[in-house]
Amino acid sequence: MIYDFDELIDRANTNSFKWDKYAGKDIIPLWVADMDFKSATPILEALENVTKQGVMGYWHVPDELVEVTVKRLAEHHHWDVPKEWIVWLPGMVPGLTLTCMCVGQDDDEVITTVPIYGPFMKAPLAARKKLVKVPLQLEDNRWTFDFEAIKAAITPRTRVFMLCNPYNPGGTVFTREELQTLADICLANNIVICADEIHCDLILDITKQHISIATLSPEIARQTVTLLSPSKTFNIAGLGCSFAVIPDDELRAKYAAMRYILEPMISAYAFEAALAAYRDGEEWRQQLLAYLRKNHAYILQEMNTFKGFKMLPLDATYLAWIDVREAGIENIAQKLEEAGVGISEGAFFFDGAGFIRLNFGTQTSLLQEAISRMKKVLELK
C-alpha cells in the first residue's frame, strides 16, 4: 500500500495541542513532537473496531501485543526479552518519574546530560531526588558524552543516570563504544540507567544503528530500565501506550506495584493501536522514513543558509536542533511567530538557550511555506 504523506490534514480547531496553540493565527506550528501524518491504515482500522464494539471498559494487555513486542525486540534490538520483564505504561514520561521514585532514597542524586527533553528535568524533582546536569560536548560536529565530566559529577549518593538514545534534542545515535563506556561507569558506581529509547525506530542516517544499552551485557541489563513505545514512530502519542523492560526482578516488582497505584489504566484504543502498529505498520514506517529523510535534507540545506544559523545533520528523529547563537536575534521565537512560523525555544530543553528546535514531521509543502516566511524576516548568508 502506498501512503500519501503529502496529504494536508486540517487540524485547526480540533483541540490539537500542536495546532490550537496558534488558534485564530496564521502560524505554521513546527514545535511539539507530533507529526501531521495520518496513522497507518491498520491502526485506524483497529481503532474503528474498538469503537464498533462500543463498551469503553477496562482492558488488560492483549496477549498478542506482548508476543508481537517480544518478537520486535528480538528482530530490531537483537534482544531476547522474556515477556515477564515488560511493564506496560500509559506514557514514557511517567516511566521516567517511576524509575526515579523506585531507585534510591529521598535526596539521592540523578544525573542526566543537557540540553535535554524537558521532563528529564522534572522527573527527579517529582521523585524527591536531586538533579545533577552534565553538558553534552560537540565533537566532530556531533553531540556526544563528556565522560570525564560524568565521572566528576558522580557522588556516593548518585543512584540513576537518565539516558536519551536517540537523543532529543540533537538527534545523536550513540555508538556501541560510547554506550559501553557509559555502561562501565554506571556498573562501577552501582548506578541504574533509565534509558529513554522512544525514537529508536526513526533512524535517518542509514549508516547508523540503534543499540539498546541493556543488550551490552547481562550485568548492565540488570541495572537498566529501558523505556520504549510505538507512539512517536507511528504518530499515536495521544493514545498513551508505552512499556518498560526491567530485567531485575526486585526493581520490576516495585516499579509495577507503584505504576498501578499512581497511573491510569491503559485504554483499549491504546493497546489495539500499539498492536496494529507493531504487527502491521512496518510498510508505513518505511515510507515515513523515506519522506522524513527528504524533509531532513531540505531543512538541513535551508537552515544553514540563514545568517548565524547552524544545523548539524541528524542521526535520527524528525526534530531539527538549530544553533542560532550567532544570529544575534533577541526573542527569536516571537520574531518567527510574527512571520507565521512556530518553533520550540531551546530554553525548554534546559541549558539549550541559543538554540531552536523545529519539527519537520509535516508535509513538505508546509515546510516550504515556513521557509519562505522565514526568509522574509531572516538574513541569508
Results as ranks from 00 to 15, higher is better:
residue 229 S to Q: 05
residue 168 N to T: 14
residue 151 K to S: 08
residue 196 D to S: 14
residue 185 I to G: 01
residue 152 A to V: 00
residue 180 Q to D: 04
residue 176 R to D: 10
residue 175 T to N: 00
residue 151 K to E: 14
residue 202 L to T: 12
residue 232 K to V: 14
residue 174 F to T: 00
residue 210 H to A: 10
residue 225 V to K: 08
residue 197 E to K: 12
residue 168 N to L: 15
residue 212 S to N: 14
residue 162 M to G: 00
residue 200 C to N: 14
residue 213 I to Y: 00
residue 171 G to E: 07
residue 217 S to I: 03
residue 156 P to G: 09
residue 232 K to E: 15
residue 177 E to L: 06
residue 206 I to A: 15
residue 208 K to W: 10
residue 198 I to V: 15
residue 167 Y to L: 15
residue 155 T to C: 12
residue 172 T to W: 00
residue 205 D to C: 04
residue 213 I to S: 05
residue 209 Q to R: 12
residue 206 I to G: 11
residue 171 G to K: 06
residue 192 V to S: 04
residue 226 T to M: 11
residue 230 P to M: 00
residue 232 K to R: 13
residue 191 I to Y: 08
residue 229 S to N: 02
residue 218 P to D: 08
residue 231 S to T: 11
residue 159 R to P: 04
residue 207 T to M: 04
residue 169 P to F: 12
residue 175 T to L: 03
residue 224 T to H: 11
residue 179 L to V: 01
residue 225 V to A: 05
residue 194 C to E: 02
residue 184 D to F: 01
residue 166 P to D: 11
residue 227 L to M: 12
residue 182 L to K: 05
residue 201 D to K: 12
residue 198 I to F: 13
residue 231 S to C: 10
residue 220 I to E: 03
residue 203 I to Q: 06
residue 154 I to A: 06
residue 170 G to A: 09
residue 209 Q to C: 07
residue 219 E to D: 09
residue 164 C to P: 01
residue 185 I to R: 00
residue 210 H to R: 11
residue 193 I to Y: 08
residue 183 A to I: 03
residue 158 T to G: 06
residue 188 A to K: 11
residue 211 I to E: 05
residue 150 I to Q: 08
residue 214 A to F: 06
residue 223 Q to D: 03
residue 159 R to V: 08
residue 205 D to Q: 04
residue 179 L to G: 01
residue 203 I to E: 03
residue 159 R to L: 02
residue 220 I to H: 04
residue 207 T to G: 01
residue 172 T to A: 10
residue 233 T to H: 05
residue 162 M to L: 11
residue 172 T to S: 13
residue 222 R to C: 08
residue 202 L to P: 02
residue 227 L to S: 09
residue 228 L to S: 03
residue 166 P to G: 10
residue 221 A to V: 11
residue 172 T to G: 00
residue 172 T to I: 04
residue 157 R to H: 15
residue 158 T to Y: 12
residue 212 S to R: 03
residue 205 D to S: 09
residue 159 R to F: 03
residue 226 T to I: 07
residue 208 K to S: 10
residue 195 A to D: 15
residue 154 I to C: 04
residue 189 N to F: 06
residue 209 Q to S: 12
residue 167 Y to Q: 15
residue 158 T to E: 07
residue 169 P to H: 12
residue 183 A to M: 04
residue 197 E to Q: 14
residue 186 C to G: 06
residue 204 L to T: 05
residue 150 I to T: 02
residue 197 E to F: 12
residue 169 P to V: 13
residue 215 T to C: 07
residue 196 D to L: 13
residue 202 L to G: 02
residue 160 V to I: 12
residue 161 F to M: 09
residue 231 S to N: 12
residue 154 I to K: 03
residue 192 V to C: 05
residue 228 L to W: 02
residue 162 M to F: 01
residue 160 V to Q: 05
residue 178 E to N: 02
residue 187 L to C: 07
residue 178 E to S: 02
residue 210 H to Y: 13
residue 161 F to H: 06
residue 155 T to W: 10
residue 197 E to N: 15
residue 180 Q to F: 07
residue 225 V to R: 02
residue 186 C to D: 04
